[in-house]
Design a protein around this nucleic acid. Structure first.
Lengths: 212, 212
DNA sequence: GTCTATATAGCGATAGAC
DNA sequence: GTCTATCGCTATATAGAC
C-alpha cells in the first residue's frame, strides 16, 4: 500500500467508478435543479470535485451525460415493485391508498422538476420523451390496469375498457393541481386539501364505474 | 414626396409599428419552434428582416421580447369570446361539441409548443407560468364552470362543486393523449380515435353527474 | 487516468455613423 | 430611428503535462 501513492492525498487505487458515481450524482442534481442549458459542464465537474476532462472521458459529451442522468432519475423515483400487490380492506379504501401514494409522487418537487426538464428538452432529443414515458407513467398505468382487471373479474367494478379507465383515474388524480404545478403557479397543498381532492377523485371514479 | 427619400429603396415614412409587428411575428414563430435558448436575437432580427439593434430598441432585452411573444401567443390561441354562449340541442350533444373543440385546441401542435416553451422557462421566469395559466386554462375553465352552473340550475346535472367538476372534465379530456404529446411520444390521433375518446369522456362525466 | 490551461465559437448587448 | 461593426462574456470541447 505504498509504492504508487500520488502527490496529493488521493487514494492508493484510482477507483474509476467512484468518480463516475460522483459525476452522475452531481449531474442528476444540477440538471434537475437548474435545467439543461443553465447547467455547464464546469458546474458538474466542480460539484463532483472532479476535473472537467474526467467528465468528458466518462460520458462523452453533454447530451449523453444528460440522457444518462434522466434515465437514472426515472429509475430511482419508481420503486422496482409497484405498490399494488398486497392491499386489503374495502375497494374504496384501497383506491384511496393508491390515490394518495400516486398524488404524493407526481406532486413532489423532484418529480415535477424531472417532468419539466424532460419536456424542456424533448424537441432537441426526441428519444428522451419516450424513455421517460416508459420508465414512469407507462409502468404505473400498467400496474393499475392489472389491479382494475382483477377487481372487475371479482365483480366489484363494472368497466368495459380497463386500460382507458386506468388512464382516466390518473388524469383525474393529477388534476388541476398537477397542471398548475407544472407551470409553477401553485404552492404545495395542505394535508386537508389533498385528502379532499383524493376523495373527490375516488368517489367520481366509483360513481362512474361501480356496478349498478 | 421627395426631399427625404433615403439612400436605399426604403419607404418614405419610417413606419415604426410595421417593424415592431414583424419582429414580434418572427419572435413568436422562432421561440415556439426552437425554444428560448436555441433562438438567438440575431435569428429573430434576421427573420424579421431588421437589424438587431432595432429589436433591442423596441423590446429592451431578450426576456422582455420572449414574455411579450408568449403573451401574444396565448391571446391569439383563445378567441376573445369563448364558445359556450349559444349551444343548442340535448346536453350530451352540447358537451360533445365543447369537448371536441377543446381537445382539438390542446392537442394542436401550436398549443403544445407554447405549453412546452412555457414549462421550459418557468424556473427562470416564475411570472411566466402564472401569465400563461391566467390567459389560457383559467379562462376556459371559468367559462365551462359558468356553463355547468346554468345546467345545474336547470336541473339537468347534479353537481355539488361545479368548479371541481369543470376541472375534472378538462383533465379527463386532455387525458393520456395530451400527456404523451407533451413528451413528444404520441402521433396525432385519427378522427375516429378522437371521437371515441371524446365520447368516453363525456359519458363518464355524465355517469358521474347525471341526476339519479 | 487525471488535472491545468487554452482553443474555438456563439451569444447578448452596445458604440458610433447616418 | 435604423444600421454596421464590435465588445465582453460564457460555454463546449481539447491539447499537453504529470
Amino acid at each position: 500500500m505504498s509504492h504508487s501513492a500520488a502527490k496529493t492525498a488521493g487514494p492508493g487505487r484510482p477507483k474509476d467508478q467512484q468518480k463516475r458515481a460522483a459525476i452522475l450524482d452531481a449531474a442528476k442534481r444540477l440538471f434537475v435543479e437548474r435545467g439543461y442549458n443553465a447547467t455547464s459542464m464546469d458546474a458538474v465537474a466542480g460539484a463532483a470535485r472532479v476535473s472537467k476532462l474526467t467528465v468528458y472521458s466518462h460520458f462523452g459529451d453533454k447530451d449523453a451525460l444528460f440522457t444518462e442522468a434522466v434515465r437514472c432519475k426515472c429509475e430511482e423515483q419508481l420503486p422496482a415493485q409497484i405498490f399494488l400487490a398486497d392491499l386489503k380492506g374495502p375497494l374504496r379504501e384501497q383506491l384511496l391508498e393508491i390515490a394518495r401514494a400516486f398524488f404524493a409522487l407526481v406532486t413532489s418537487d423532484e418529480a415535477l422538476a424531472v417532468h419539466r426538464t424532460v419536456i424542456a428538452n424533448v424537441q432537441q432529443s426526441p428519444q428522451l420523451g419516450a424513455l421517460f414515458w416508459e420508465a414512469g407513467p407507462a409502468r404505473v398505468q400498467g400496474a393499475f390496469d392489472a389491479f382494475l382487471r382483477a377487481e372487475v373479474a371479482a365483480g366489484k367494478l363494472d368497466i368495459a375498457d380497463t386500460r382507458r379507465a386506468a388512464t382516466q383515474f390518473f388524469c383525474l388524480l393529477k388534476g388541476e393541481s398537477h397542471a398548475r404545478m407544472e407551470f409553477g403557479c401553485c404552492a404545495a397543498l395542505k394535508r386537508r386539501e389533498i385528502d379532499e381532492h383524493v376523495e373527490a377523485t375516488v368517489d367520481m371514479f366509483l360513481r362512474a364505474y361501480a356496478p349498478r
